[in-house]
Design a protein around this nucleic acid. Structure first.
Lengths: 144, 144
DNA sequence: CATTAATAGTTGATATAGTCAACCAACTGC
DNA sequence: GCAGTTGGTTGACTATATCAACTATTAATG
């Protein structure tokens, strides 16, 4: 296991397991992992201008699928869609209810993560943060 | 972002994206991510004694689903199932064809990973390996 | 300005992935 | 030999995702 490729692959296995990427429902939110990612992305976007096509491109998802998920979000009252200047597009914005839902979800996720590193001392946390930054810097030449 | 929880969550986002965990088909193998994990697990197991129930437990999967995937594997000629002493259980073993398939798949995955860190110098690789080990040691108190 | 081509998004049909409950056969303990 | 349990399979179903066809609108070209 001195080899970087093997080490990395082993780490990938470990991490995807650890992070619960395999679980079908994201944090028992009733959302699938993909739907949760969509909602997060909507929450992160500059208010007002986000289009369905942006989501498709950013997350590499099928337009039809995105359309349906967005309809569900709309029905749940988490997003609203207006018409823009270009009447084909339907800019997405998060409603207050959606915002609230997202905040709750985020809090739960954060609490979960916190619990999973609760056993680490402050010193060890610092080491962890440094190591994570190191990994990311090396793997992602174009870090944002 | 000085906070360990936030750093970790950001890393999780980055890594799951980087590792391509979202892609439906594992390395264009025709297998879904779950099926690929099953096959790997079968390949890793001590020859002969592996049971479907072990796979269910280890990977937290539904018995019914596992049963079907294993049937597909059998039909593809990748595994064979005998009867054990306990005639309820059907110990799984990899056939030569399955072994070969797995080797090819592994080579492709390895090549892919290698390409993605091709830009790293030997020194940087060593740093990466150390950082990965560090992360894992901290996150996984019960590392194997 | 009329026609054609492209774009944003939706919808229908279909495939794949995963879940849940019922079930059979074989084993265990009494 | 019977009650309860275990390993595995099957059937019915839901959720997730893909593909192609379609509508409405805008842009491009003559």
């Amino acid at each position: 296991m001195t080899n970087a490729v093997d080490a990395l692959r082993a780490f990938n296995r470990f991490h995807s397991q650890w992070a619960g990427l395999l679980r079908p429902s994201y944090m028992d939110s009733g959302l699938g992992v993909t739907a949760a990612r969509l909602l997060y992305e909507i929450g992160r976007a500059p208010t007002g201008g986000l289009l369905a096509s942006d989501l498709c491109a950013d997350l590499a998802l099928d337009p039809g699928y995105v359309s349906r998920v967005l309809s569900r979000f709309e029905k749940s009252g988490w997003i609203a869609r207006d018409r823009g200047r270009d009447a084909r597009q339907r800019p997405i914005r998060l409603t207050p209810a959606g915002e609230a839902f997202l905040v709750r979800l985020d809090q739960r996720t954060r609490a979960d993560t916190a619990a999973r590193i609760a056993h680490l001392s402050p010193g060890n946390r610092a080491v962890l943060v440094a190591a994570l930054a190191q990994v990311r810097a090396l793997l992602d030449p174009a870090a944002d």
